[in-house]
């Protein structure tokens, strides 16, 4: 893989509450010595149970939080020094979609909300119009552009939030548990938009606790107690036996059972589609 990093984390430590002068104890670190790079154009899933520090880590990627020690580089810009003058230079590059679709929409008209980000970075009005229409079409919400967000479903609101991020044209989008508050239908819609964004060549970071969603990434990082517990391709990760409380995706469990009963399923089969394709080709062959 080409080593052109979008985001670099170097021994990042972060504590929410800091004493006046005494350095926080190791146990208080929400993130405790995390180092890894996220390559341009990759699709990385960060998984972990509640309190593992995955959301805190995500907020470091666009300078919403600054590391207590260590450093975060976004496109070679240091988040700490950039934050003092123009944090939006980083946030322009790394957009973020949050968990609660209700609490991230600003305007009572859908298209005005999508325009909010581009307006903030001073884009020409005609260009904003073009981007708003384009991103609303991409998430399939163009016909709702004049409506109020309170009339839409959770999944639709989340699509508006994504459109608002895409309209800023970031190189990288960080999703912080975007499907946690949605029903299965909304969840599927969001995942298909995430896939689309990745296929456009954007870097995607997906924070989730659904292993099924993580299986679609090309790399999974498992966080535990503020540290990186495991890091690898989905096939590598799912073959480990130290994943603890995290439930394996259905396809992986199914593949294991099939292997036990003598069907040779390759290790890189991790999603339902891959399993279905494999089984169908098996039948024909």
């Amino acid at each position: 893989m080409a080593s052109d990093p979008m985001i670099q984390l170097k021994d990042v430590r972060f504590a929410y509450e800091q004493g006046e002068d005494d350095t926080p104890q190791a146990a208080e670190f929400a993130i405790d010595g995390v180092s890894f790079n996220i390559e341009k154009g990759s699709f990385v899933a960060i998984v972990g149970s509640n309190g593992s520090g995955k959301s805190t880590l995500a907020k470091h990627m666009n300078a919403l939080l600054l590391p207590t020690s260590g450093e975060v580089l976004v496109d070679d810009l240091n988040t700490v020094t950039e934050s003092q003058t123009q944090p939006w230079e980083i946030r322009k590059r790394v957009g973020m979609v949050f968990q609660n679709p209700d609490n991230q929409l600003v305007s009572s008209v859908v298209e005005d909300d999508v325009a909010f980000g581009p307006e903030n970075i001073g884009i020409e009005p005609s260009e904003i119009r073009r981007r708003v229409d384009e991103s609303l079409q991409m998430v399939g919400m163009y016909e709702h552009r004049k409506k109020g967000p309170h009339l839409l479903s959770g999944g639709q609101k989340q699509r508006i939030a994504i459109a608002g991020v895409i309209a800023m044209d970031p190189e990288c989008v960080v999703f912080d548990e975007p499907t946690a508050m949605l029903d299965p239908k909304g969840r599927r819609e969001i995942m298909s938009i995430i896939r689309k964004l990745h296929s456009q060549g954007r870097t995607v970071v997906l924070i989730t606790h659904f292993m099924e969603e993580a299986a679609e990434a090309d790399r999974i990082i498992i966080m535990e107690h503020g540290k990186v517990h495991a890091d690898g391709t989905p096939a590598q990760i799912f073959s480990r036996d130290d994943l603890g409380v995290l439930a394996l995706p259905f396809a992986v469990k199914m593949a294991k059972r099939l292997r036990q009963s003598g069907i040779d399923v390759p290790a890189d089969i991790v999603t339902d589609e891959q399993l279905a394709d494999f089984l169908c080709s098996k039948e024909q062959g």
Partner: peptide, 13 residues
């Protein structure tokens, strides 16, 4: 609090 963070993430200044 959530909204303020979301607005900041969308470059509001």
């Amino acid at each position: 609090g959530d909204l303020a963070m979301a607005m900041e993430a969308r470059c509001y200044h």
